[in-house]
Amino acid sequence: MKKVFLILAFMLGATSMNAQEKKAAAKEPVIVEVACGQCMFGMKEIKKGCDLAAMVDGKPYFVEGTKLDDHGDAHAADGFCSAVRKAEVVGELKNNVFVVTEFKLLPRK
């Protein structure tokens, strides 16, 4: 009986994802804009300091799975606190956070 309940709970949880979460949970890489959430996306009310964020469907989400300083000097002219960049990512939205399993910063054009 416990197994049946767990299977039903899992199925209900999987079907309750909203469209935005389903799109962001793709296993294929997608291109998103990334930058400092506070400096470039105006997310000052959520956290203090500088943190990496990604724009998904026009809304910024803080990123887990990689950090701002993992990709160079955030305060350089082309750093995340000074410029919005593009990245190829694989990840999903979980509890209003974009959790990435793959992150490849794309070169500037």
Rank of each mutant, 00 (worst) to 15 (best):
K3A: 13
L6E: 09
F10D: 00
F10N: 04
S16R: 07
M17Y: 14
N18T: 08
A24S: 12
A25Q: 10
A26Y: 06
E28C: 01
V30E: 05
I31A: 08
I31Y: 07
V34W: 01
M40F: 05
G42P: 06
M43D: 13
K44S: 14
K44V: 07
K44Y: 10
E45P: 01
K47A: 06
K47D: 08
K48F: 05
G49K: 11
G49P: 07
G49S: 10
C50N: 06
L52H: 05
M55Y: 07
G58F: 03
P60I: 01
F62V: 01
E64S: 14
T66R: 00
K67D: 15
K67T: 12
G72Y: 07
G72H: 11
D73T: 12
D73W: 06
A74S: 15
A74F: 06
A76I: 01
A76Q: 03
D78N: 15
C81R: 05
C81M: 04
A83Q: 12
V84N: 04
V84I: 15
V84D: 07
R85W: 10
R85S: 15
K86H: 10
K86T: 00
K86N: 09
E88H: 05
V89D: 04
N95H: 08
F98A: 01
F98D: 09
R108D: 13
K109Y: 09
